[in-house]
Design a binder for these strands. Structure first.
Length: 427
RNA sequence: GUGGGCGUAGCUCAGUUGGUUAGAGCGCCAGGUUGUGGUCCUGGAGGUCGCGGGUUCGACCCCCGUCGCUCACCCCA
């Protein structure tokens, strides 16, 4: 009967983000929003869940993510829905549904859900920001998308990032390659690692990505994708590589780079943070998906995009010692009021209307207590109002960052408070 | 899904071969300072030692289970 109330916690693999950490998120997202705007992308908002088919057809029924990591549920109307495991499929679904004029360039920031055992840099709910550009297969779009990611990493202080690139070819030349690869794997089946000896035929490309020495030895000796591209795909890939070079962005050809989603064609890429020593060191990735719009029932439309994991970006920043906050969330002014009246409310409001960030104390605490809170808040200035100031229609302004313990503080008439504070904060 | 490590105050942790009133630092509150933070001093609040069961005269400590956290494999952001 009298059970104590249960203590709820965030579900496994999810996290609350509180200040001051949350300011890093604000800064990261704000920086990305500004850059995306500069590159001509506008914000798109999508539902957090979709008909499960959007993801099954998009990222591939056989993919690891679709088969065992999706949060699938049935709603009260008996619809089978899934929480989005990544960003691209939903954005392309929205493109197909609304068919906006192309080229259509959109950026997003969204949670993503995957049912996995959490570990460093891997969570059941993580967050991605990214862009998608639909309606062109111009290699310039590939370069632009990759450059945006690159410049973004630079802007948030990451220096030890490597760009790996590869081309999957279009479906025909990739199809031909996969046949060659299959033949090679079949001939060397007994030499594969324990897992892939049984499963290689399900998705032969996955074997390229296997980190075990056995598989690596086999694929090392086998055919690689870049050597089997058709002339068009090869030319496209070369123009992307040249374009990156022209912007001073260093990339490394990684013929084994096979990303986890089946929708990729031609250009694929991944950003690796060398500062992260965990296995989860991919901070972003993406590629071209020239068949995806069709697969989702829309008109044939080329597209390219990338996504980056916010948690991993923050881990990489920490590992690199990139501690600049990107965004200052400390208050300008702290109002201390010991009059027992509502002057603090009025002063705070006036200062806020003037554009200042203002905090204040509550509960009519002692001046000492309020000053302590003011100090902890990080505010630059304290505005003090006690009975004496109230009677004289004045306020006392104190510089909280001064080293001088016995500093002189200034008094100003209360109707000059806003102008004086604006002037002081500007300095 | 598989395996390892760990669960003691809000946080970081100590707790001796099981021995009775469970500690520290930081943080929080109050006072020293009759209006003034950051240093210092004093006091205070705050713990069913994750939860359940077992062994024992006695369990924070040993055993089993369970839940949680964490790391790794797999895969990915």
């Amino acid at each position: 009967m009298n059970e104590p109330p249960a203590q709820f916690r965030a579900p496994v693999g999810t996290h609350d983000v509180l200040a001051p950490q949350s300011a890093l998120w604000e800064g990261l997202i704000g920086t990305f929003a500004t850059l995306a705007y500069r590159y001509g992308f506008s914000l798109v908002l999508n539902p957090l869940f979709e008909d499960v088919g959007v993801f099954n057809r998009g990222i591939g029924e056989a993919s690891e993510v679709a088969t065992k990591e999706m949060y699938v549920f049935t709603d009260r109307g008996n619809r089978t829905l899934a929480l989005r495991p990544e960003g691209t499929a939903s954005v392309v679904r929205a493109f197909v549904q609304h068919q906006p004029p192309t080229p259509w360039k959109a950026w997003y920031v969204t949670p993503a859900f995957r049912y996995e055992r959490p570990q460093a840099g891997r969570y059941r709910q993580h967050h991605q920001l990214g862009v998608e550009a639909l309606g062109t297969d111009d290699p310039a779009a590939d370069v632009e998308v990759i450059a945006l990611a690159w410049r973004f990493y630079e802007a948030i202080g990451l220096r030890r990032v490597r760009l790996l690139v590869n081309s999957m070819g279009h479906d025909e030349c990739r199809g031909r390659y996969v046949e060659l690869l299959k033949a090679h794997l079949a001939a060397n089946e007994s030499a594969l690692c324990d897992e892939h000896r049984e499963t290689w035929s399900m998705n032969p490309l996955r074997v390229l990505d296997c980190k075990r020495a056995a598989c690596r030895a086999v694929t090392e000796a086998g055919p690689m994708l870049p050597g089997h591209l058709c002339a068009d795909c090869r030319a496209h890939f070369e123009r992307v590589a040249d374009g990156l070079k022209g912007l001073g962005i260093a990339s490394t050809l990684e013929p084994r780079l096979v990303r986890g989603f089946d929708y990729y064609t031609r250009t694929t890429f991944e950003f690796v943070a060398d500062a992260l020593d965990s296995a989860q060191n991919a901070i972003g990735g993406g590629g071209r998906y020239d068949k995806l719009a069709e697969q989702l029932g829309g008109p044939a439309t080329s597209g390219i995009g990338f996504g980056s994991g916010i948690e991993r970006l923050l881990l990489a920043r920490e590992a690199e010692g990139a501690l600049e906050p990107l965004l200052d969330r400390t208050p300008d002014v702290f109002v201390v009021d010991t009059t027992g009246t509502d002057v603090a409310t009025r002063y705070a409001d006036a200062l806020r209307l003037a554009g200042l960030a203002v905090q204040r104390a509550y509960d009519n605490r002692s001046m000492k207590a309020q000053m302590k809170v003011a100090d902890r808040s990080g505010a630059r200035f304290a505005v003090l109002v006690g009975p004496a100031e109230l009677a004289a229609a004045q306020v006392t302004i104190r510089d909280l960052r001064s080293e001088d313990h016995d500093q002189t503080q200034r008094s100003v008439a209360h109707d000059e408070l806003v102008a004086t504070m604006l002037d002081l904060v500007k300095k």
